[in-house]
Computed example of a mutant assay.
Amino acid sequence: MAAIVFFRKVSEDGELVRYAFGDDPDGFSRHLTMDRESRTSSADDGRTDYSFAKASRKINAMREERGQWPDRGMSVS
């Protein structure tokens, strides 16, 4: 079974980066917040399901790879 999650940066400040994410790039229904220093994330709706974990891992991987928080992206498996 294939899984896909899209994400887009909504806001960024000195401490946090907030992303919208979901399986429809034209209608994100969820948000996650990433702590810039610890690089830990939390689901704004409290649901730490597969889609949340997939988006969070991909955002962190892209941050590590590029040295900056990505504006948008997707993860497919």
Rank of each mutant, 00 (worst) to 15 (best):
M34C: 13
F7H: 02
I59Y: 08
W69H: 10
G27R: 11
S56M: 05
M62H: 02
A53D: 06
M1Q: 04
H31E: 14
F7D: 09
G22M: 05
A61D: 12
F28I: 03
R8K: 15
L32K: 07
M34T: 09
G46R: 03
I4T: 14
D26R: 04
Q68L: 13
R8W: 00
V10W: 02
T40A: 04
V5Q: 01
R72P: 00
T40H: 10
G27M: 02
S29P: 00
D24N: 14
A20K: 14
R63T: 13
F7I: 01
F21S: 02
R39Q: 15
F52L: 03
S41C: 13
I4M: 08
M74F: 13
T40C: 07
R18S: 05
D23N: 10
R8T: 12
Q68M: 13
P25S: 07
A20I: 04
K58N: 10
A43W: 02
D49C: 01
P70D: 08
R57Y: 06
S42N: 10
E15I: 14
D71C: 03
G46K: 06
K54C: 08
S51A: 09
R8Y: 03
S29D: 12
S41E: 01
G46S: 10
F7G: 07
A53F: 05
S29E: 10
A53G: 03
S56R: 14
A2F: 05
D44N: 15
E65R: 15
E64W: 05
V10P: 00
G46M: 06
A55R: 09
Q68H: 14
E64N: 08
G27H: 11
D44V: 06
E37T: 15
S77F: 02
